[in-house]
């Protein structure tokens, strides 16, 4: 068996020390004190920071999801409808809005959100869907569906 790798490793000593350290120091540039000035301290902290960054990529998504959920349930509460009922009603009427869009609508376009809540309520009424979670009856706006020509659209099977 011929080991090609070993002879290559002997010849190539790896990157220059200066450049190797410089790469670490660049990543530690925003640290404070010895953590940015001493290599042996800096490299430990850079590795730790990179681990945090890796974990945070997932955490950020979870945090945003939690925030959207909080905002949606806050907006739903104003119209006396639970987030579950809203989602169920919108799914049944084939309105595929995700959490982000719903929470954006809730904070920036409250009237649009109110109409969405009304549509969800109307759709569940037409379907005869009884939600045991929702003790209170949804009191959103009453859309006059004949005026906006939604009735046929809501009644059709999705």
């Amino acid at each position: 068996m011929v080991f090609l790798t070993i002879s290559n490793l002997i010849r190539v000593r790896g990157p220059d020390e200066f450049w190797r350290k410089r790469r670490i120091f660049r990543l530690a540039a925003h640290f404070v004190g010895r953590r940015r000035n001493c290599y042996s301290v800096a490299v430990r902290n850079v590795h730790r920071a990179l681990v945090y960054a890796t974990k945070a990529r997932k955490l950020k998504k979870q945090d945003m999801k939690d925030l959207w959920n909080t905002r949606i349930s806050a907006a739903c509460e104003q119209h006396n409808i639970t987030a579950f009922t809203l989602k169920e009603g919108l799914d049944r009427s084939n309105i595929m809005l995700d959490r982000k869009s719903l929470s954006d609508l809730a904070s920036w376009e409250p009237r649009t959100f109110e109409c969405l809540a009304a549509i969800a309520k109307q759709k569940l009424q037409l379907d005869g869907f009884i939600d045991t979670v929702d003790k209170k009856y949804p009191t959103g706006v009453n859309l006059n569906l004949k005026d906006v020509m939604l009735e046929a659209w809501l009644k059709e099977k999705k």
Binding site: L67, A74, S107
Partner: peptide
């Protein structure tokens, strides 16, 4: 938490 503009 009851407002849609909530942010920590």
């Amino acid at each position: 938490l009851h407002k849609p503009i909530y942010h920590p």
